[in-house]
Design a binder for these strands. Structure first.
Lengths: 258, 258
DNA sequence: CGAACGATTGACCGGCATCAAACTCGGTGG
DNA sequence: CCACCGAGTTTGATGCCGGTCAATCGTTCG
């Protein structure tokens, strides 16, 4: 996965002041003020990360929300018994770390799946007692609220998928979700470079690795997918939608509403 | 379920101006300003609802976020094929409608499970160009962000439950969740009045009604629960936690991390 | 009382997890 | 260059959890 030509600077740990004017994600970033007011921007830390690097661990003190500039990330959650669950993937332009705002510590661990770049926006960026920039802060907060709303809506969809869809449908829904978000990030919706392993997909979807693997070959056989390791071609997004819609099988009978 | 002595006024549809000073939930309400600044409060509509009443339907235009003053509510989501999924229950002091902020329409339908009372806070409450109250708006927005953060964290926990836990564990986790939230709302954690039907529980947990029914009797037989229709006594919350923690069975072997 | 609805219990079976083994691919060292 | 290794992936065989179907019971309401 070296699709993105990132200038990797040799100052990984410390980070640097964010260069928002040049940022490709400024349109969706809660820190970038359309009105041009850049007060507080010096609080924001930008840094680059390598594949496998952990951004923060679950349970560590909240230090701000993160915006993905480039690269791909995954959130995972581990219960007290060591049971692991991938709770989400994060694409360029998206946020993570939102669950830590309220409790003061992050609920998930986040890891880079790839070389990437991100910004950390501390909560203080949105607060403070300076009356002069209160309006600017309100705008930033409102942008944050919108992004969080999107996260909530996305979670609801995912909950629906886990509760009501069978393995085949879940897998199709997953592919559609990735395709759409890759599209939003400027990639080709019909030609994906998966940034995660089969195991991670399985874990995310609440399935066994073997099941996911079988689904890949099954979809391949049905012409729904052209798989080459992590390189995917999707001939028809509509066909996948048909599978999720479940003209498929028993799932449709679950809870019909007259 | 008539645990709460609500003064039911005969002006259901229209609503009335919120009486925040007397509200039992003002501590957790994003509209109530600790600093005493009550500008914009006239925008907030309070109303009472009866069991079964629909607050809004999925897809309708976003008109604000709702705060539960009293009573219990459920969110549900229906896909294009009529497949229904209960995505959440809402207890006093909690918010719903959050997923509509970004897209401009509600993603879920919400229904009262009981007689109850709630407030609607339109988005404009948090915005506006008046510089004088900008600081107050920032505070309100920050409160909203915190509540949304809590919702995101809760969703993550639920996703974990759906993906990684078996029916027995899910059911135990559900009981613990309800007990905790009832506790937060001022009720007895060990003595619950369930406000939802078996069908709704099953739907929420992604299980069949029959399975949930079997679990009730099973837990009853093991002394984990004392069931009398919707009246529950929980002798030991710790025992339920033990089940979720899965010293139980195979689930613990799913994804162990050395 | 009978109808309607929710809850319970039993019998059956299918989807997916589990176990087990082979295969692919990239890296490493002799 | 090839043997070797390990991680990730694929494929096959088997078993069980929980969904489905069906019947009964209890409660509420017309």
């Amino acid at each position: 996965m070296v699709n993105n030509n990132i200038v990797v600077l040799n100052q990984e740990r410390s980070g640097k002041r964010a260069s928002c004017q040049l940022c490709p994600r400024k349109a969706s970033c809660p820190a970038f003020d359309q009105a041009g007011n850049d007060s507080g921007l010096e609080r924001i830390q930008q840094r680059t990360v390598r594949a496998g690097e952990e951004i923060f661990a679950a349970g560590t003190d909240f230090a701000g929300v993160y915006v993905v500039r480039s690269g791909f990330f995954k959130s995972s959650l581990m219960d007290s018994e060591g049971l692991l669950q991938v709770t989400g993937f994060h694409f360029p332009g998206e946020l993570f770390g939102l669950d830590g705002i309220d409790g003061g510590r992050y609920g998930n661990s986040v890891q880079a799946l790839d070389t990437g770049s991100l910004c950390r926006i501390p909560l203080e960026f949105f607060m403070g007692r300076d009356e002069a920039v209160a309006a600017s802060r309100s705008r930033a907060l409102m942008a944050l609220v919108r992004l969080m709303s999107r996260a909530v809506a996305r979670d609801n969809g995912f909950i629906f998928a886990l509760a009501r869809l069978n393995a085949r449908q879940r897998f199709a829904a997953f592919l559609l979700d990735v395709a759409e978000r890759m599209g939003n990030s400027g990639y080709d919706r019909n030609h994906l470079q998966l940034c995660m392993s089969r195991t991670e997909i399985a874990n995310y979807l609440g399935l066994a690795v073997e099941t996911v693997s079988r689904l890949f070959t099954q979809f391949q056989g049905e012409g729904l997918l052209d798989v080459q390791r992590r390189d995917l071609r999707i001939p028809s997004l509509e066909a996948l939608q048909g599978i999720v819609r479940g003209t498929d099988e028993a799932a449709a009978r679950l809870v019909k509403v007259g």
